[in-house]
Design a protein around this nucleic acid. Structure first.
Ligand code: FES
Ligand code: FES
Lengths: 133, 133
DNA sequence: TTGTAATGATACCATATAAGTATCATTTGT
DNA sequence: ACAAATGATACTTATATGGTATCATTACAA
């Protein structure tokens, strides 16, 4: 059960790389050269990050991307949400409820508890904390 | 991000049904009739549960399955492991480590903490707790 | 003793999602 | 004008999940 899909993984790597180069521009060619990640895939990911406001882009020759937010304001949970949909296990785990018990369900209670705890802790993980800054 | 896949889901439903009928035998035909779950798929799932020791089976006419463990000894985590592989997010989330930091990695620390907590709580969820017994 | 209703074992197919590629248009520095 | 970059978007491939099908075996019962 993998918590992160590959695009999230790659996105984080790219962002870390960029935070290291900042405020220098970084192109997909640079990432390809230094990180060896599939280039057109990377390109797609960067475009998504740009649209979402994490990166600023400059077109044309010598163009590229730069970080548009400070690393301490980029939360891993947001990136997961962006690439994999919202991190929420709050609903009934089963496709169709097992129990009628709106609140009595023990499984549901347990899951909700876990979720709250997990989200709270995950929120502390930012790009800054990953770079050790 | 769904925590349970469909075979786990169906397995739990079947087990709950059987715990209700116990010690009466239950056939896939019964499950099909009462639970309306895809019959041959269900069959496969029951066979897995049987091999894993959760069900006892009787072949031939009027054959079927019965629970082979008491509901309080059937843990949801075991079923998840059986159908979806081990529930362990202990490893580095990224395919290839981001940081060299064997222990310094903040993400890793957070994840490990979440895992320990989640597993501890999930262990309390058994078939018995789901049936309200 | 033969037919039928069940499971055992296992191979196969279908569908959805993730992963990755390709293409053409647009922008910009030289 | 050309080259090197991104923007937008469509397409293809790989993998995992979900689901079927088939044949063998067992057991009851008329
Ligand atoms: S509401 Fe889903 S198991 Fe109780
Ligand atoms: S060991 Fe994986 S991010 Fe640190």
């Amino acid at each position: 059960m993998n918590l992160l899909t590959r695009n999230t993984d790659y996105a984080v790597r790219a962002l870390i790389y960029m935070s290291g180069k900042h405020p220098e521009r970084v192109s997909t060619a640079d990432l390809d050269r230094d990180l060896h990640l599939p280039r057109p895939f990377m390109r797609k990911i960067l475009q998504i990050l740009q649209k979402a406001g994490y990166l600023a882009s400059v077109k044309g020759k010598n163009g590229g991307f730069t970080l548009a937010k400070v690393p301490s304001r980029i939360h891993l949970t947001e990136l997961i949400a962006l690439f994999q949909g919202p991190v929420s296990m709050g609903d009934c785990l089963f496709r169709k409820k097992l129990c009628d018990c709106a609140d009595g369900c023990p499984l549901r209670r347990v899951i909700k508890g876990i979720e709250a705890m997990a989200l709270a802790r995950l929120k502390s993980v930012t790009l800054a904390s990953l770079t050790g800054a």
